[in-house]
């Protein structure tokens, strides 16, 4: 394909439409519409404000859908060799998350999901100890000694701060282990 043909294809209307913005805005439009319909069934005094807010949401997202679809962004600027550290912070974060593979996401969701499942079932202390040991040992490749000292220090600090000094409850899970 010639350079001109590639350029034309990249400049096509559909190519320039930001698909993620489109999907997110359509989802929000549906959410606002559902909220509007739900609020319409409430008595007037309880419904006025939610109707106004969800109506404004429908309007704002509809306008943005039109903008995304019919007034799409200009063609992508050519890639530059600006170093990451010199790019705006929002761009750095955006590109960081964009660069992640499915495996990265599965890895993060697995670790976080595991922690919160343990939290729901066994409470904060068991979840904290199991997560800290497993994460430091197998993800961060730390020694058993380091892992043991870190875990004891973290659990001890949390226990002394919340149970002994402040006497504040912490999540105990299904078995009330806190």
């Amino acid at each position: 394909m010639s350079t001109e043909a590639v350029h034309t294809a990249n400049d096509s209307w559909w190519h320039r439409v930001n698909k993620s913005d489109l999907i997110i805005t359509v989802l929000l439009l549906v959410m606002f519409a559902a909220a509007f319909l739900t609020a319409a069934s409430w008595p007037a005094l309880a419904a006025h404000f939610p109707l106004g807010v969800s109506g404004a949401g429908v309007l704002a997202s509809a306008i943005f859908v039109v903008r995304v679809l019919f007034f799409p962004r200009k063609a992508d600027a050519p890639k530059t060799n600006i170093p990451d550290a010199a790019k705006p912070m929002a761009d750095q974060e955006y590109e960081f998350f964009r660069s992640l593979t499915l495996k990265d996401w599965a890895n993060a969701i697995g670790w976080l999901g595991g922690f919160f499942v343990f939290l729901a079932v066994f409470g904060i202390y068991v979840a904290m100890i199991v997560f800290t040991v497993a994460y430091l040992r197998f993800q961060a490749d730390k020694s058993w000694w380091f892992t043991a000292i870190y875990t004891a220090a973290l659990a001890g600090t949390i226990y002394i701060t919340f149970e002994v000094v402040l006497k504040l409850p912490l999540p105990g899970g299904l078995f009330g282990l806190a």
Partner: peptide, 25 residues
């Protein structure tokens, strides 16, 4: 990576402590 367990615990306790409800987590 060493800070991750500490930060995850901070997030959890931060969300929980406001009202003491697990639903907030």
């Amino acid at each position: 990576r060493i800070l991750v367990p500490f930060l995850v615990v901070m997030l959890t306790i931060g969300a929980f402590s406001a009202t003491g409800a697990i639903e907030n987590v």
